[in-house]
Design a protein around this nucleic acid. Structure first.
Lengths: 209, 209, 209, 209
DNA sequence: CATGAATGAGTCTTCATTCAT
DNA sequence: AATGAATGAAGACTCATTCAT
């Protein structure tokens, strides 16, 4: 009823879905379990047949995001192709993920501080690993003379920031198609690194795969 | 003690300062007026001799940020120089502000939704105006053939995102000096727009002023 | 596992057993039906196939205690022997019961107030009857010059109190054997009443039976 | 207002008083903070201006009881008189305290298990110390041939039990005066130990002091 | 019989806010 | 100005109980 497109099979799924929506819209602290329950169509106490606590609910919402993202990035990074092509793959992965799972990504960014200390630490570690891989690629490209690196870390931040930003406004029904967004941001990133034929590389990209 | 340079003269100032710190660290919802009072060294009820409400406190913390930012941007934009130089000035303004007033900027980004509807609307309008000016500059540069614009809005977002990101991690004592960060991000932005001699333009910039 | 000797045959029995254990350890109010269910190895809802309500469970745990005790006391009181011998029999009965069914006795003492009003009234009536019989014996002994009674009621309380106390600490595996405890407390009670040859009477007691 | 005799000066005192009353009547678990607040004549949330938590309230109610009791007992034990006189003094102290502060003593006995583990451990240690002193006196009396000891520990329990029991029913307005109760129970205790002239010793007791 | 799920009632606790002093 | 106390509103969570499967 409340999920026209994605009918949640389990009540537990429905709870996670609605919670994600509400956490995204109002923030974790400002979201009441009453609101979550109402959105699902059950009473607050019934919630506890499916979740352990509000904190656990947040965890399960943020849950796999970083793992999924790391897994996808791994694939992109591991391809046996040119650095630039791997970089493009990583960019594609980054923006596509940030857009297609915008809500979770956004929550993952904004509600880190609502997480219990140990869980937060784990997520932060994954985040660092994720950024490190991007940075490594940038350094490699620089070393091979295929990019003019100003500051590897800041270039990385610049890329990461694009994803964070996209996650805050992307809507499937928006004016810009996801592929177009990815295409432009990938070009922008390569340009920022002064990669030769940045635009062409991006447009001809999946070809090499 | 927590503000080495700017010792708050008024109690009201101290409150705003500590509130900013706490809102930044834990978020508006998760911050208690008790915590603010404790940080200032007074009791909760005494707070109300200086503030009207928690919401008003948030407003006064986020208060001038957008106004100040718009004012600074205005100066940058109004200079009677080359588009690219104006763009650089705007970039400098953007990153410098995002870094030097990181906490307020961060709160302004993350706690928009905690604002009462009308206040939120006003801030959003200012935000749009701010972004519009950047976008206009990009469009102008593109029209004059001094930049190869892929999508003016996305380029704008890319720039804005850098500031948002910087506001989340910049510390005065950090490894990177503010000027260096600005220098690199300005180059990155010009490169992203395929501006000729991007790096040189940035390095030689204030000269024209 | 928790009942080495008396393995509960019925699930209903197991429930009563575990409930008794938990009520004893944590009190009725502090005991959760979930805990009872867990102790039995079933789920909470399954409990209701065997009990009517938590209150009824308490009732059935406290259930027969007073009836059983009264019945045993009846036998002791009705013997056709010397008052002192009957008193000793009653003392034996009292302490033996308090020790051998310590948990139920303890619960019966401490959870009276958790009982619904009418049930509580019934138990209290039985209690009074029980104490009255002891008191009557004391009075009789006094009248016959076989005891020096200070205050029949207080002597009765003194005896009752010993049982209550024993019920709170007696463990079958403890240092003192049950028979020894009974022997000593019986002597103490007779001594308290200044019965002649108190110790000898107790030691030679079952002889007369 | 609600305490005709003992007008509590502080609100905090009133809370402790009413809490003691309610904990005594219905038990800690069955007592609601709402009830406590209502009894005091304030709202539940106001309670928290005076207490830290329900558990702390229990602690502060049970608070000094054992300390006070130990202090009084110390005085009785330390007198430079005959063992039997010291024993009588200790008995007087025990029963008098159990009666005059019946509610607190009762709560201290019945709600031990509601205490957090560490607090419970402390109270239990004090209890043991208290009982040990009684037992030492009994042993001493036995060694000096002034008492015929059956089992020092059980005699101690017998005495302790009388106090516990008294605390459960004593009312200042009751039929038996406190002094009479003390007198009888002291005699009963000495008789139980086969002390010579038990009754006379008790009746002539304070004389030696 | 056993159980997963639902739920109304109620628990302790926190918080922003007010007001008399 | 500062504060102790009071309070309405709300929040997360628990529990005994019911019912369909």
């Amino acid at each position: 009823m409340s999920q026209p497109m994605l009918a949640a099979v389990t009540t537990a799924d429905a709870i996670r879905e609605q919670a994600a929506l509400l956490f995204f819209e109002r923030g974790y602290d400002a979201t009441t379990l009453r609101q979550v329950a109402a959105a699902v169509g059950i009473k607050v106490s019934s919630l506890y047949n499916h979740i352990e606590s509000k904190e656990q609910l947040l965890l399960s919402v943020m849950g796999g995001v970083m793992d999924d993202l790391l897994a996808l990035q791994k694939v992109a990074v591991s391809q046996d192709v040119d650095v630039i092509d791997r970089l493009i793959a990583v960019l594609d992965c980054h923006i596509r993920f940030s857009a297609s799972r915008a809500r979770e990504v956004f929550i993952g960014n904004s509600e880190l501080r609502s997480l219990p200390t140990d869980a937060r630490a784990k997520v932060i570690a994954k985040r660092r690993e994720y950024e490190r891989r991007i940075q490594d690629l940038i350094v490699e490209a620089g070393r091979e003379g295929k990019a003019v690196v100003l500051d590897a870390r800041l270039h990385t931040y610049s890329i990461v920031a694009k994803g964070t930003h996209v996650a805050s406004w992307y809507r499937p029904a928006g004016a810009l198609s996801m592929d177009r967004i990815i295409n432009i941001y990938a070009k922008a990133a390569l340009r920022e690194l002064s990669v030769n034929d940045a635009d062409t590389r991006v447009d001809g990209w999946p070809a090499a795969a």
